[in-house]
Amino acid sequence: MRFSLVVPTLNRQVEVEAFMQGLDRQTFRDFEVILVDQSGTDLFDDIVARYGRKWPVKHIRSDVRKPRHACNLGAREAVGKLIAFPDDDCIYEPDTLERVDAYFQKTDDQGFITGAVLNLDGAPTAMGRWLKQSQPLDRHSIWTGLIEFNFFMPRDLFEQVGGFDENLGPCTPFGSCEGPDLALRLMSAGAHGYHDRSLLVRHMDKSATINGARAYDYGTGMGYVLRKNHASMRTVLTFFIRPLGGTFLNLLRRKSDQATYFFRTLQGRLAGYFSTEARRIARHTPRENIS
């Protein structure tokens, strides 16, 4: 088996159906899907039965409603040489897996690869700032070059670093940046990363005016991961200054909703960076790979 695709989901039948339809259009077909179902219902039984006739589908039920716990749970059942963790509401382009396979064939299954994001209409995403060209990743560019649902790696490397940090992501105190954290730990273990602009996955755009609570929640994850992985002062200042600038710029433009979003993002990043948990784990994390 070449690919194991671990998909955590909770009550999103329509989205999972669309994801499976995208897989049915893949030009590369050597994969399994591990659906980690946190719904506690039989909502996905029909989807599992229908698509299980096309490729292997493992249906794992979990009582823990925590996406990165679900990823680690599903990964323990994976048999593919390569592993990925697509969101249940993303859609692969027809050549996504073919491109990933070609990359790892060329590199002898070393390191990891990530790519770009399109919205569901096929246009460039409005979700944040992203690298404009294909390039190797370092501990600074990882923050604008990686997205969790378009992130592929050898399964043995994922297992070597202990999988996802389950204290990160939705339903945790630190609500984002599980992907950068995993990638930074892969780099610390000696893996190289690459951002391929032609490796595309579709995902619904998130509103630029998400509420302040969610902005704060996302911010705490970034702050925690920056501190945990001993980010350089250049990286820390970059991601503290940007929301500060966004706050003042939008106040001058009298865009109060946007100003609130940037301010709450800054508050969250500061809270995560200076949290007791971030300080504690940073003391026990080696510093030799600081960029």
Rank of each mutant, 00 (worst) to 15 (best):
S4H: 11
L5H: 06
V6Q: 03
V6H: 04
P8N: 02
P8G: 02
L10I: 07
R12T: 03
E15I: 08
M20P: 02
D24L: 14
R25C: 10
E32P: 09
L35V: 08
V36R: 15
D37W: 00
D37V: 00
S39G: 12
G40R: 06
G40L: 03
T41N: 00
L43R: 00
F44W: 09
F44P: 07
D46Q: 05
A49Y: 13
R53M: 04
K54A: 02
K54M: 06
K58H: 08
S62M: 11
D63K: 04
V64D: 05
G74H: 01
R76C: 11
E77R: 14
V79E: 14
I83Y: 09
D87C: 08
Y92P: 10
D95K: 11
L97F: 01
D101R: 13
F104H: 01
Q105N: 13
K106I: 02
F112E: 14
I113Y: 03
A116G: 09
L118M: 14
L120I: 07
D121W: 12
P124K: 04
A126D: 11
R129G: 04
W130Q: 14
S134T: 12
Q135P: 03
P136W: 08
L137C: 09
D138T: 06
I142W: 01
T144N: 14
G145P: 02
E148G: 10
E148P: 07
E148K: 07
F149E: 09
F149V: 08
N150S: 12
N150I: 11
M153W: 04
L157S: 04
L157E: 01
F158G: 05
Q160P: 06
G162E: 03
G162A: 04
F164M: 04
D165I: 00
D165E: 01
E166F: 09
N167A: 14
P170C: 05
C171L: 10
P173N: 06
G179H: 02
P180H: 10
P180G: 10
D181N: 15
M187R: 00
A189Q: 05
A189N: 13
A191H: 06
H192I: 05
H192Y: 09
G193D: 04
D196N: 10
L199C: 03
D205C: 06
T209A: 01
N211A: 00
A213Y: 02
A215H: 12
Y216R: 02
D217E: 15
T220I: 11
Y224T: 04
L226W: 08
N229T: 08
M233W: 07
M233D: 08
R234V: 12
T238A: 07
P243T: 06
L244D: 05
G245W: 03
T247L: 15
F248K: 10
L249G: 07
L251Q: 11
R253C: 08
D257N: 12
Q258H: 05
F263M: 07
R264M: 13
L266D: 06
F274L: 10
T276R: 15
A278L: 01
R280Y: 13
T285K: 01
P286L: 01
